[in-house]
Design a protein around this nucleic acid. Structure first.
Lengths: 180, 180
DNA sequence: ACCTGAACACCGTTCAAGT
DNA sequence: ACCTGAACACCGTTCAAGT
C-alpha cells in the first residue's frame, strides 16, 4: 500500500514497522530484506489485478465489452488516492529495483498483455500474429495515460486520453450505453 | 544527469558533490535545497527538448514528417543508457516531488503537447478543436511505450510499440524510406 | 518463535567557522 | 565569494540479547 503510493524507494521500513506496531528490526524476522518485502507487495498487486481481469471478463460476457471495461482497472487506481498502478509506477525507478521486485513488476505487465491479447483475438479485432503487438500497444498507452493523469492530478484527463485512443482507433469503440 | 537516470530520489547530493569535487555542504551555497537543484535539472531538460523539437521541425521540413520523427526524442533517451525522459520518469514519484520540481515536469509535457498539436493541425490530421486531445494521446502513449521498453530493457520493443500505434491509427503512418 | 536496543554506514540539511 | 567539519535527524541493516 505504501509501495503503491510512493514506489519502492518510498516504502519505508521504519514507518511500516510503526504502523504494524513493532520495531524496525523486527521486520527482518518476517522478510530477509526490503527487496523481498517489495517483491511480496508487487506480487500481491498483480495477483489482485489478475483476479480483477477475470471478473471483468465474466461480468462483461463477451470479449469486446471486456476490452471496453479494461481501462477501469487503471482508472480505479487513480480514484483510490490518485495512485499509479504498480506496473508503471515501479517501472520508473526500474533500474534501481532489486531483481526480485523486477520479476514481479514484469509479471504484472505480462498478465495484462496476455489478457488483452486473448480478448482482441476473441473479438476478432486482430489476427493471431498481431494480437500480442496490439495488446502491448494498448497496455503501454493506458499506462502512459494513467501516468499523465496522475501528474496533472486530474482523473478527467485520463478519461479524455482514453477517449482520444478510441477516436484514433487504438482502442475499440464500444457502445457502453444504450442511448448512443 | 543523475536525476534522469534515477529520478528525484536517486539524485544524490553527497554523490553529486563528490563528482564535482566539493563537499556535500558546499552544494548548499549554490542551491538552497535539493528541491531547487532538482527543479534546475528538470528545467534544463525540458529546455533542451524544446530545442530538439525545433530542430526536428526545421530538419523535417513539413509537419507530417516532423510527426514521424517525434518518437526519436524518446528513443534517444532510451539509447543513452536506457534512460527515461524526465517527464514520465519523475511523474512516477510525482506525489513526493517538491512543488518547484512539479512545475518543471508539467512544463515538459506542455512543451511536447503544444508542439504536437501544432504539427497535427498543420498536417491536416486533426481539426482545431481535436488537436490538443490527439496531441495528449500521442504524448502519453509514447511516454508509456518508453516506460515499458525501459522496464524490459529492450529498445526494439519501443520501436514495435510505436509501430503498433501507427498500425492502430494513433500515429500517422509516414513513409520514411523510399523503398516502401 | 518473535521481538528488541544498540550499533553501523548511509542520507539531506544546518551552521558556525575557515580562506 | 566559496568552501569546510561537525552535528542533526533520518534511513536500511545486522546482531547479540531478551522473552
Amino acid at each position: 500500500m505504501n509501495a503503491q503510493a510512493h514506489g519502492y524507494t518510498g516504502l519505508n521500513i521504519r514507518g511500516l514497522a510503526g504502523e504494524v506496531g513493532i520495531k524496525a528490526a523486527s521486520i527482518y524476522y518476517h522478510f530477509p530484506s526490503k527487496a523481498e518485502l517489495g517483491a511480496a507487495v508487487a506480487r500481491r498487486y498483480w495477483e489482485e489485478t489478475a483476479r480483477d481481469l477475470e471478473m471483468i471478463r465474466e461480468a462483461a460476457g463477451d470479449a469486446l465489452s471486456s476490452l471496453g471495461r479494461y481501462p477501469e482497472i487503471f482508472r480505479r487506481s487513480l480514484e483510490a488516492g490518485n495512485r499509479l498502478c504498480m506496473g508503471s509506477f515501479m517501472s520508473a525507478e526500474y533500474d534501481d529495483l532489486p531483481e526480485a521486485v523486477k520479476v514481479e513488476v514484469q509479471t504484472f505487465s505480462d498478465v495484462n498483455i496476455d489478457w488483452l491479447a486473448k480478448q482482441l483475438l476473441e473479438a476478432n479485432i486482430t489476427a493471431t500474429q498481431d494480437s500480442k503487438l496490439r495488446a502491448g500497444a494498448i497496455f503501454s498507452a493506458i499506462a502512459g495515460a494513467q501516468l499523465m493523469a496522475r501528474s496533472r492530478n486530474d482523473i478527467k484527463l485520463f478519461d479524455e486520453l482514453i477517449e482520444g485512443y478510441k477516436l484514433a482507433g487504438l482502442l475499440p469503440s464500444t457502445q457502453n450505453s444504450m442511448s448512443e
